[in-house]
């Protein structure tokens, strides 16, 4: 049961953590609301950080901030930008 101690295995997990905390700080939702929604997804057996991102996306959809289509489109734009960027250069969205 003992595994390494680092809180994040990948930078995107840290980024997703920071986004949720920042949005809660900004008053978009309370942390109690967050844990209920997140806990429900975890209870379904979803991987921890996948569930975290799903909760973020669902929260933004429910509040009319970002629909799945918009997230899909921008995620594709980020993947395309990564492919178009030479190794060693920071990836930027055009």
């Amino acid at each position: 049961m003992k595994t390494p101690d680092a809180p994040f295995d990948a930078p995107w997990q840290a980024q997703a953590f920071g986004l949720a905390v920042a949005l809660s700080d900004a008053g978009l939702f309370t942390w109690t609301e967050w844990t209920q929604s997140f806990g429900t997804r975890l209870a379904c057996g979803t991987d921890y950080w996948d569930a975290w991102v799903q909760t973020l996306e669902a929260t933004l959809t429910e509040r009319g901030i970002a629909g799945a289509d918009e997230v899909d489109r921008l995620a594709k734009a980020w993947e395309d930008a990564a492919h178009a960027t030479p190794h060693g250069v920071a990836i930027r969205l055009g």
């Binding site: 990948a10 930078p11 995107w12 980024q15 997703a16 920071g18 986004l19 920042a22 949005l23 900004a26 978009l28 950080w49 996948d50 991102v53 973020l56 996306e57 933004l60 901030i65 970002a66 918009e70 997230v71 899909d72 489109r73 921008l74 995620a75 594709k76 734009a77 980020w78 993947e79 990564a82 492919h83 178009a84 960027t85 030479p86 190794h87 250069v89 990836i91 969205l93």
Partner: peptide, 29 residues
């Protein structure tokens, strides 16, 4: 060339949307 994992791209997409809408500040994150 650089390759983004799907979850990495998704989180970047969320941050882009929220930053453009002025809901989060990347420096604060």
């Amino acid at each position: 060339d650089n390759h983004l994992e799907p979850m990495d791209a998704r989180v970047r997409a969320l941050e882009t949307i929220l930053t453009r809408k002025g809901l989060v500040d990347p420096a604060a994150i």
